[in-house]
Simulated assay, not measured.
Amino acid sequence: MVHSMTAFTRLSRDAAWGSLHLELRSVNQRYLEPHFRLPDSLRDLEPTFRETLRRRLARGKVECSLRFESAGEGEALTINRSRLAALGFALQQVRAEIPDAPMPDALALLDHPGVVEAAEPDLEAIKAAAVALFEAALDDLIEGRAREGAKLAELIRDRLAGIGEQVATVRGLLPTILERQRSQLQERLAALQAELAPQRLEAEIALLAQKADVDEELDRLETHVAEVERQLSQQGPVGRRLDFLMQELNREANTLSSKSVVAETTRCAVELKVLIEQMREQIQNIE
């Protein structure tokens, strides 16, 4: 099945410790090129994410953005009792030495470094949830690439059918081309008031027919079309193979154009080039 390299997905996950928001975006690229934007507390997940991408994708520029929002940030506070007791003991010593020294109020005590501690979230649980969210988002991204790939394959098959029609048209024109060459040669001889022996005339016509013979090019075009169709049904990445086949199809179309001796075959060669270029543009997005 053909997969596109273009897709986007966004997923979120909520829990008691807060919420995670993840976006994955992929566009066409010659190789696999991942980019990550992760919170500092989850930065060590990047190697895991990178390896997961490497196992499941072959090509594309993939951007991953992960955002973490802590639940009740600034509210979950605890008192460090040992620190507070040490501070109280120190204040008693100060009062014993300086009875008139003003004592801090409760709010000032809470503001002292180390007395109030924010409850630390369960970082391991958050990391596990982030990995699961990333894998779910990657599943969704790959499904999107598959849907887009199916549309691209349909467009390419339409162009392949068009190439088949042009090849059939040129094949049907071959007898007419040969007869026209014979007539044109005889007209030129008549204009020059020249006369060739029948054997010489047939030899000249055979030489012209050989120069204009495009059977081999048409056969190769049909072979390449069949191979493109086969690749569209293959499992795994096929973009590079399809890109190579577009080069081969274009080569045969150019040869057909260079051998053209009548306007009809020139028109068919031009139409072939248009169809091949349309396929090539679509194939740039195929994994």
Rank of each mutant, 00 (worst) to 15 (best):
L141Q: 08
Y31C: 11
V27K: 01
Q284M: 05
E271F: 00
A16Y: 02
E51P: 10
L11P: 09
Q193L: 03
R83H: 14
Q231P: 02
M279D: 13
S70I: 03
V228Q: 09
Q235M: 10
F244P: 03
A90E: 15
R95G: 05
L275R: 09
R220S: 09
E63K: 00
L275T: 14
A206F: 13
A7S: 15
K151P: 02
L201S: 09
L24Q: 13
P34I: 15
Y31I: 15
R159F: 02
L207A: 12
M246I: 03
A15M: 11
A226S: 14
M1E: 02
V228E: 11
P39L: 04
E120I: 11
A253K: 11
V228W: 04
R180E: 14
G18H: 02
L138T: 07
L123C: 04
F36N: 10
T266A: 08
I156Q: 12
Q210Y: 13
R230A: 12
S41E: 15
L173R: 14
M279E: 14
A71L: 03
V94S: 10
A106D: 10
A136M: 03
F8H: 03
Q210M: 02
P39W: 06
E195S: 08
E179G: 09
A128C: 07
V225R: 08
L208R: 04
A58H: 06
L87E: 12
Q93P: 01
L178Y: 03
R159M: 03
A203T: 15
P102G: 07
D40M: 06
P47F: 01
Q166D: 05
A212F: 11
N254V: 14
P47S: 06
T266H: 04
T265E: 10
L152C: 09
A86R: 11
L155H: 02
L84N: 00
L87D: 10
V228D: 11
R43I: 09
L174P: 07
R54D: 01
R30V: 02
I205F: 00
E73Q: 05
Q29T: 13
L45H: 10
H224K: 05
A96W: 01
H35A: 13
L22W: 14
G149P: 04
A71H: 08
S12F: 05
D213I: 07
K151Q: 07
E120M: 04
L208G: 07
I276Q: 00
R230N: 04
C268N: 07
